[in-house]
Design a protein around this nucleic acid. Structure first.
Lengths: 197, 197
DNA sequence: TTCCGGCGATAACAAAAGTTAATTTCCTAT
DNA sequence: ATAGGAAATTAACTTTTGTTATCGCCGGAA
């Protein structure tokens, strides 16, 4: 049994008291997906309503700016959810690309299938609320960082909270996620070194 | 019957086919709240898990930065939901203040009560998913603006999409929501006037 | 091993934003 | 209607970021 299924069963039990043995209607419609480093999971224009739980590795969601540069919206790593939000929320083709930064293992479900399962087995609903709230919480935290912190402070924050992730990801993606250029991030790092820390 | 209840009944019918006549278990636990301009709805430190639908007026959520300045996280207006996210998502005291910018009319529910109602009447669940997705969608759109657009572009965007709202709200709150200072917003406006548009 | 390409650091300059303070404009409460 | 205060503009100056280009380093591919 995959690690992901075990942790999600555990989560489901905590949320709604559903025993692992009773969770098969849900996990019967999930499947494991393995991606190589740099492999694309969702392309721009894709219509699939994919929702996935990350078992191993780091995923990156990005879009292209008018000038053609990539803009990284967020990174997601182990034990987080990643979802094609354009397709799931708005039923529109994805404007974002979702790509593996490392070798990645996902536990995937199609959101339409999930909805159908929820209809028949409402006892799984808390799991859906959980992942929606988690994603909402993460987005709000990011918004908060943008309105309350300077780029340097956002970077310090990220280092303090996710040092391991920062170290596994090329700086240019970190910079873009912070809303600045790689050159500017390099200068921030230099300033931090010069000023003792 | 309040305008809000009618629109939410309509929404509930579209989402799950529940007839307005069958929605009383839900609306029996909501109440109308009226706030004067500048009145505080949720204070920093409040633990109430308030969720509200805005019938009339504009609300502002803000927090205090280390330096003591206010940072506006977002504005919400007619037909949007506003929620004390720290208390609802994390069950922690609110770090944000929610305040009316104009005279405001809300339809309010306590999230704990909502959960209890959902347990007994699962046919209302789609409404909860709807508001979670709406808030998620709005947050993601804001994050996207921060990583893909310059402050000036974000301001132009906001004008194009919400001219009415921008005009009803003091510039300093708009500036803060865009992640810049009021002085900087003033300069952006000047540049836009000078350059023909 | 060698070559190539991407990544990060650095430099130089332009543009934008932060900071502080003064001035004007606007709104509101009396 | 008026006075007081808050909000917006403007100015002067500092700091930071963007832009473009160069250089060195490292790692994968031939």
């Amino acid at each position: 049994m995959s690690v992901s299924i075990s942790s999600l069963q555990q989560l489901l039990f905590e949320l709604s008291g559903v025993l692992p043995a009773d969770s098969s209607p849900l996990f019967a419609v999930t499947r494991q997906v393995k991606l190589h480093a740099n492999e694309t999971y969702i392309r721009e224009g894709d219509q699939d309503r994919r929702l996935a739980y990350i078992e191993k590795g780091i995923m990156r969601a990005y879009t292209l700016k008018q000038n053609g540069d990539e803009a990284t919206l967020f990174l997601r790593w182990e034990k987080q959810f990643i979802a094609s939000h354009d397709t799931i929320i708005h039923r529109k083709p994805s404007r974002f690309v979702y790509r593996a930064l490392e070798d990645v293992t996902l536990l995937e479900i199609d959101y339409d299938v999930l909805e159908a399962v929820m209809k028949v087995y409402p006892q799984f609903e808390p799991l859906r609320n959980f992942f929606l709230m988690r994603m909402l919480s993460e987005s709000l935290a990011m918004m908060e960082a943008f309105v309350t912190l300077s780029p340097e402070e956002r970077y310090r924050n990220l280092l303090a909270e996710r040092f391991d992730v920062v170290n596994r990801v090329p700086d240019k993606y970190i910079a873009s996620m912070l809303g600045i250029t790689p050159v500017s991030l390099s200068r921030i790092r230099k300033r931090m070194l010069e000023k003792g820390k």
